[in-house]
Design a protein around this nucleic acid. Sequence first.
DNA 1: CTGAAAGCGCTTACAG
DNA 2: CTGAAAGCGCTTACAG
Lengths: 336, 336
Amino acid sequence: MKTNVTMKDIAEKLKVSSVTVSKALNDKDGVSDELKEKIKALADKMGYRYNTMAKSMKDGKSYNVCVIIPERFTGMTQSFYLKVYQSIAQKLEERGYYGIIHILPSDDEEGLKLPRIYHERRVDGFILLGQPSKEYIELMQSVDMPLVFLDFYDENADVDAVITDNFYGAYELTNYLIQAGHREIAYVGNLFSTSSIQDRFLGYYKSLLEHKIHLKQEYVISDRDDRGSFIEFDLPEALPTAFVCNCDQVAHLLMERLQKNGFKIPEDCSVVGFDNDIYATLTSPNLTTVEVDIDEMAKNAVKFICEKMDDETAAFGRVAVKGKIIYRDSVKRLSE
Amino acid sequence: MKTNVTMKDIAEKLKVSSVTVSKALNDKDGVSDELKEKIKALADKMGYRYNTMAKSMKDGKSYNVCVIIPERFTGMTQSFYLKVYQSIAQKLEERGYYGIIHILPSDDEEGLKLPRIYHERRVDGFILLGQPSKEYIELMQSVDMPLVFLDFYDENADVDAVITDNFYGAYELTNYLIQAGHREIAYVGNLFSTSSIQDRFLGYYKSLLEHKIHLKQEYVISDRDDRGSFIEFDLPEALPTAFVCNCDQVAHLLMERLQKNGFKIPEDCSVVGFDNDIYATLTSPNLTTVEVDIDEMAKNAVKFICEKMDDETAAFGRVAVKGKIIYRDSVKRLSE
DNA sequence: CTGAAAGCGCTTACAG
DNA sequence: CTGAAAGCGCTTACAG
């Protein structure tokens, strides 16, 4: 089987022009049905494979979308981002595009180096999955190319972003704790680390406010330093009855710590997480948490980037995708 | 900044030909140093970006290598495969290629559907990361394109494969247990599920043989059904003093089960795993296990695929990359 | 319904 | 050292 059959080869065998072959193979008008079938059959038989490069050249598009994931996110939440990518790739494919993962090395992030794929014009748009440094965000924005932020946003309002509804998710989860009779509720997370952690905190805080529960300073417990490395928790003297953790992994860490100190969960302390990732079912008891709607997020991100590639002026702003509370066994209903 | 500056644009401004610009930008002979510098400076100033598509068209290569990962592996060992991919992509880039992840949907695997990227000639070679069905392997082999298996192999000898040295790793680990005084050692894993599990079993068995320890039938404990889903362990009446698990996740599951039944680890039972993945440090105590040398595996896979793309006849056979035992706290030294 | 011509952006081989 | 010509595989716009 000859490995590089071209339209011209097919045309010659059939004594027609390659224009006609092109039309037939693309199901365009201007070829008789009979000829079209004949061409398709022969193409099949000859093992013809369409050469997208040629089309790319013609219309100056690569049909690639690059999904950039900062390296440091590939350790922590690896399963999550890979799943998101999978969903993105699938949805791009439905629109005739390819997804290309680019894991952004920390050095390149620091040195403000764009992926080579950009310099070689092999990409028509970027989806930035996971928050890089402020400087890198600015760099990406300065490049005149369709760009969508995914799973984070920036104070800069003029970029399109798809995020989970962190605020509302944490708000609902905290409401749930309060309905279960909890009043002493702590939040675990470094408020200055990422916008997700901050927004989840604010959702938690709103719930407290609505229920007229005072926010105690010592109930806001940091879980990591500003560079994102986890730190030892600084637990308050008097333990709260419940903890809202900014993510499942931290909930897992916290539960280990509490259990080591002799506390039972949920009997002595209730704990809730966020993300519904691998850590949520690794703990015992399993965690009540918020599940992110990965498919919906991917769907939006792909829709945005595709429409922006078609029309430079398209703009969508910030879209928050609602999550879903997964009720498990880490919360105790307090007697009133 | 004009977004699509071409060599011709640069040439016109400088009143030279685009051939000269091409030579200058590619650091080829045949341009005076002075002119070369001038061209490079102007290219920079005009924001010129090289168009690889054109080159691709010219020499009929896409400069893409597709890394296919069967979908079912993205759940289980997600972090591992993403790390492997990251390493592959980096090493490909050093050679002027791009890595493209294709997560193979189970439906496509079943329906023997090749990735679209193949049909569109956007790829020069495949790295198959993780073992798909026998039929899919045959399909991939029937396609006349450079192919390397990574992290598994097939009985079919004529394909190149890079694997971890499962046999030797399990052999060494079992030796270590025996040196620690263990004689009653079980193996946990379904021997008919994957070649990795089988080879690890054989390494374990070799160690027993060398030490003249009889292999008890009831000491080979299945951990999953033939489709890969974990099942409840069928523990023997009389517990062995040590378990060699085919992977960390199963070791984790086993430890949970043993601890639930009131056994202490490592006091009552020693447990070792394989992979050194997230599960190894999630257990308490942390697992003694074998760490896979991801970089070395990626390096070999990339070397093989690149040389095969250059020279169709290149062949490398099966290469096993040695792992490294990570000693932690899940093994007890028995008094002799 | 069918096809000749031109062009996408680059490179190779050759001539000067 | 420099460049005109041809070609990679396809598509678009136009003519018949």
